[in-house]
């Protein structure tokens, strides 16, 4: 079972746990309608598009409203700590929430007790929390962008806003392989990395395993949610049973293809890209 956890930017949304389904332009969880296009909702939408296409179970989600104070985030951490053994996901994808290092440690300790252990994916501030708490190596997949791989490589940084300036400035397509190595050396990386950018780098502790740079759709970098969709697709593909490296390569390619088919512009909405995911897999990708 694929389990996705993260916040929704609505202060009034209670903690929700359950199967997600699509209802028009919205996601529906426990009779609550959630806009499908922002942050964790974009990730869920992309995962759902793919689970529908693959004809596997839809994701189960744990969501709570949070506009930045962290109350909803805390509810999700606490629910996970309490219930994750009972839920026993095969893939657990953690996403937008307040990076609370103490609660992340508590959750990680619970996750270590699971047998079989779930594939652990972290993106957004879940990735920040895992790295800052010194737990990165215990995760299976991180999906950083260029600024975030610099953060993972900086052994002292607790948030991307406070990374070493020179490391940030030196991070470009040509230096990504070196910075990936630095992240592994400093225990800031998960078992697999997908570094998103003009070229997408898939790597493990031995270095770069694959580079995906076609089709080139530079406008995708402007669109809020294009990283979230990669993480959502990757989570769904791993839940389907693909090995992690293959899932990461396919997700990176599918995202670019969806952007191309949607003729993405810097003003496009992520929903336009997500809508193209099924046809991209139908017409362009073989799984």
């Amino acid at each position: 079972m694929l389990l996705i956890a993260g916040i929704i930017p609505r202060a009034d949304l209670p903690l929700l746990e359950g199967r997600v389904e699509r209802k028009g332009q919205f996601l529906n969880v426990q009779l609550h309608e959630i806009p499908s296009g922002q942050g964790t909702a974009a990730m869920i939408s992309a995962a759902l598009a793919l689970t529908e296409y693959l004809e596997i179970d839809p994701p189960r989600v744990i969501l709570a409203g949070d506009t930045g104070r962290g109350e909803g985030s805390r509810k999700i951490y606490e629910y996970l700590v309490d219930k994750v053994a009972e839920l026993s996901p095969s893939v657990l994808a953690l996403h937008y929430w307040m990076p609370n290092l103490e609660l992340m440690h508590q959750l990680y300790e619970k996750l270590q007790l699971l047998d079989p252990a779930p594939v652990l994916i972290a993106d957004a501030a879940s990735m920040y929390a895992a790295k800052a708490a010194g737990l990165a190596a215990g995760f299976d997949v991180f999906t950083p962008d260029l600024s975030e791989i610099a953060f993972l490589a900086d052994p002292e940084a607790v948030h991307p806003a406070y990374i070493d300036k020179h490391l940030f400035q030196s991070c470009d397509r040509s230096t990504v392989p070196d910075i990936i190595n630095m992240a592994y050396k400093n225990n800031g990386a998960a078992r697999y990395l997908l570094v998103k950018g003009k070229s997408d780098f898939i790597a493990d502790k031995n270095g770069v395993l694959a580079v995906v740079d076609e089709p080139d759709v530079p406008e995708l970098e402007c669109i809020g949610g294009t990283g979230d969709t990669i993480t959502g697709m990757c989570a769904a593909l791993i839940a389907k049973g693909l090995d992690i490296k293959q899932a990461l390569i396919l997700s990176a390619r599918a995202n670019r293809l969806a952007g191309m088919v949607a003729t993405a512009t810097p003003a496009s909405r992520i929903e336009e890209v997500i809508a193209r995911i099924p046809e991209v897999f139908q017409n362009h990708l073989d799984i």
């Binding site: 916040i7 929704i8 930017p9 922002q38 942050g39 964790t40 909702a41 949070d66 506009t67 930045g68 962290g70 909803g72 985030s73 937008y96 929430w97 307040m98 990076p99 993106d123 957004a124 501030a125 879940s126 990735m127 920040y128 962008d145 600024s147 970098e221 402007c222 669109i223 809020g224 949610g225 294009t226 990283g227 810097p266 003003a267 496009s268």
Partner: peptide, 17 residues
Amino acid sequence: IVNTSGGGCPDIPYLHI
């Protein structure tokens, strides 16, 4: 403003809206 992207903290989806 036509888009914001990046980041990961819980106020970012709210600020986007």
